[in-house]
Amino acid sequence: MTFLARRIGLYLVTAWAAITINFFIPRMMPGNPAEIVFSRLSANGIVTPAMYKALVVAFGLNTHSSLLAQYGQYWVQLFHGNLGTSITYYPTSVASVIATALPWTLALVGVATILSFVIGTTIGTVAGWRRGGWLETLLPTTTFLQAMPYFCLGLVLVEYLGVKLNWFPVNGGYAQGDVIGFNGAFLASAAYHAFLPGLTIVVTSMAAWIVGMRNMTVTTLGQDYVLVAQAKGLSRRRVMITYAARNAILPSFSSFVVALSLVVTGSVLVEYAFSYPGIGYVLFQAVDNEDYPLMQAVFLIITLSVLVANLLADFAYVLLDPRARQEA
């Protein structure tokens, strides 16, 4: 289990690094974001003492305490879940803005990542297995999809499948008038609305899985154990799945962090293009309104979610690779 312990240690250090970066960014940058935030907040209405305190701690506004003391206070606020007050959604607290948006993104991005992984890996295996087949000749086109700006595909889908053909809704996470809750009608509506954004993420992020898996399958096919399996007379299907694919898939898990980064980037832009009520859209709103507290909190939440996702990938890796389990 040292493998997992090491990974968890790395993620803890990364979480600490992200939180510390978040603390230092507003203090290192030129200009005075604290002034902007303070004047924006005052323009919105009364700044309560609690809000003021959060602002002081987050941005080092009007403070005479040392950097170290500020850093300590920052952690205390963080542990109380006090991330400040949003300017965009005044007077809602940043924490509750994020709590509303997070489930949407987790559902959309979670399902899209899994679908993209499953579809991409399957196509990659088949392409690598059938050398010279039509799938393989299509490989270079995947770079085109990958390099295409996500929002471009998104906006084209919105225009043609959404507006022109009117098959799918073009914005929002659910129909107006829907009551949010865990019932069949609402979930169906949510899934219907998530279809186009999800499709965009899957199509643009799939290429990385396809190419990686195809290359690994091709490399694995040259190994002796695959030759032995074929010589034993096992069925082609069995050789492909339990001998070639099973081994070829391992690097996909260790490079999961890399592919996930693509999905996260894509989903931020895609949520914006579809006005999807998730974290990415909130991030855009925050940027648009110079809402620094909200922006930073969104960055923290995304980082923590990415860390958890990577941890899950590591668990899957340990399940699949006996070597990672035995390594002591």
């Binding site: 790395l10 993620y11 990364t14 690094a17 992200a18 970066i21 962090v257 980064s261 996260v264 980037t265 931020v268 991030l283 940027v287 922006m295 969104v298 960055f299 995304i302 980082t303 990415v306 860390l307 990577n310």
Partner: peptide, 9 residues
Amino acid sequence: VLPLFPLLV
């Protein structure tokens, strides 16, 4: 491991 695009934003 840090998410690239949000950090960049």
